[in-house]
Design a protein around this nucleic acid. Structure first.
Lengths: 144, 144
DNA sequence: TTGAAATTGATAAACTGTCTCAAAATGATA
DNA sequence: TATCATTTTGAGACAGTTTATCAATTTCAA
């Protein structure tokens, strides 16, 4: 299981190398747990890992998830009072439809939008690495 | 100045009437200040209003901005660790191109993307109120 | 193997936003 | 306009989430 996510581990190692950071047991452990999720909060991951590693600190989870964001493996999304960490590599990139009333989240992908984004970027001399698109509104149930 | 935003004040009064709420000096004051912004945090509004009204409580700002959300005048968006209250009556929405190297921000608008967003939302039964689109990458200068 | 540098775990602290409650303000009614 | 039930306010306490602190431990280059 530990060598299942070779590519992502490689990305992490490269990031660590570039920034004089070190590979630790915790970082490996958290990476593997994280890559099994689509998105998760630090708190949820803390409780999940507490079963196998009761002494893993919450602060370490936060630090490590933020590290993953720096390395481009995760993306933080602030919603309500919590932060969700999205697994960027797990699937293709997905954007979000968010109901501001019931907090329901629908994920979607739209090639045409992505293409237009590239176009806009190119027109401004930018090369896109990642993006974030969130549509806020009311789902069909809450509109009534 | 106080009678500049007649339409929005009317919306507020209707909401208050419907819910057995009262029109107060603070609610008028905060509404007028809010409508001058495109989006603002409760904290920022607190400091801004403190100059003219040193005894306006932060809790009152929060309560009132949330009231505006209920009335449909504002919309809360979680941004970073803070909540920004968007002025819904402002329409000129702009998106952002952000250089991850030099932090330069370029604003843009793209009608076609907006149209596709509506399409995606409709397909999922959503009615969009606002959205956020951020493209992260390297600007032409930083790419070299 | 050694040792400088980074990391960890535990917890304190910071931050944002909500709750509490006595005092004040509102507005419907007389 | 005076009355008064109801709502609102201000100030601070409080709660939930995330970051900072720091001594002890771990990593990894030499």
């Amino acid at each position: 299981m530990a060598n299942k996510h070779v590519k992502e581990m490689q990305v992490l190692k490269e990031h660590l190398g570039k920034h004089q950071l070190k590979l630790t047991r915790q970082r490996e452990l958290i990476l593997n747990a994280f890559l099994r999720q689509e998105h998760i909060t630090a708190e949820a991951m803390y409780h999940q890992l507490a079963k196998s590693d009761p002494h893993l600190g919450l602060a370490t989870i936060y630090r490590t998830l933020n590290l993953f964001c720096d390395a481009g493996l995760a993306q933080a999304r602030h919603f309500g009072s919590q932060t969700k960490y999205d697994n960027v590599s797990h699937k293709g990139h997905h954007d979000h439809l968010i109901c501001t009333s019931c907090d329901q989240i629908v994920e979607f992908e739209n090639e045409e939008i992505e293409r237009l984004q590239e176009e806009v970027a190119a027109r401004n001399g930018f090369t896109i690495k990642t993006h974030r698109l969130e549509l806020y509104g009311l789902c069909s149930r809450c509109r009534h």
